[in-house]
Amino acid sequence: MNLKALMERATNSEIQELELLSLEGGFYVARIRLDNGLFTLLDDTAKPMHLRSITQLRDLLQTVPVFPCVLVQHCVHDEMCGRDTGPVEDMRIPFSLTTPL
């Protein structure tokens, strides 16, 4: 999904959530959850858009209607130390496009 499609979907209140996925190397990838699946935000060359911060995402989407957003980070500590039982869950931290964390 490109930025234009994201704006159209946001205007039509079709976005359930935006996940800002924290990746190794200090960058983020935005994924947009709709009724029919999860879509990565793409740049002008149709490659995943690499973002450097929540602030950059806010600047990029400053004219888009507000929708729920969540920062997703893998819990590396649990992976390194191990867990007694169950899968390792991602940390999901809600944030706003209009106010700082």
Results as ranks from 00 to 15, higher is better:
residue 5 A to L: 14
residue 42 L to T: 11
residue 81 C to I: 10
residue 58 R to N: 08
residue 28 Y to L: 08
residue 88 V to L: 07
residue 9 R to T: 00
residue 59 D to C: 03
residue 59 D to Y: 03
residue 18 L to A: 12
residue 39 F to V: 00
residue 54 I to Y: 05
residue 46 A to H: 14
residue 29 V to C: 06
residue 80 M to Y: 12
residue 18 L to N: 02
residue 96 S to W: 03
residue 21 L to F: 10
residue 8 E to N: 09
residue 45 T to Q: 14
residue 36 N to D: 15
residue 91 M to Q: 13
residue 98 T to G: 00
residue 37 G to N: 08
residue 70 V to N: 01
residue 35 D to Y: 03
residue 18 L to F: 02
residue 59 D to F: 04
residue 36 N to W: 07
residue 10 A to E: 04
residue 71 L to N: 02
residue 9 R to E: 07
residue 53 S to M: 09
residue 9 R to H: 10
residue 66 V to D: 15
residue 26 G to W: 09
residue 15 I to Y: 03
residue 2 N to H: 14
residue 38 L to Q: 10
residue 10 A to H: 07
residue 32 I to Q: 02
residue 60 L to S: 01
residue 91 M to Y: 15
residue 70 V to S: 11
residue 22 S to K: 08
residue 60 L to Y: 03
residue 54 I to C: 06
residue 95 F to P: 04
residue 32 I to T: 05
residue 49 M to L: 15
residue 68 P to N: 11
residue 97 L to F: 04
residue 68 P to T: 12
residue 61 L to Q: 01
residue 18 L to T: 11
residue 48 P to V: 06
residue 22 S to W: 03
residue 49 M to D: 11
residue 56 Q to K: 07
residue 45 T to E: 15
residue 37 G to W: 04
residue 41 L to G: 04
residue 56 Q to E: 15
residue 75 C to V: 13
residue 75 C to G: 08
residue 32 I to N: 02
residue 94 P to W: 14
residue 3 L to W: 00
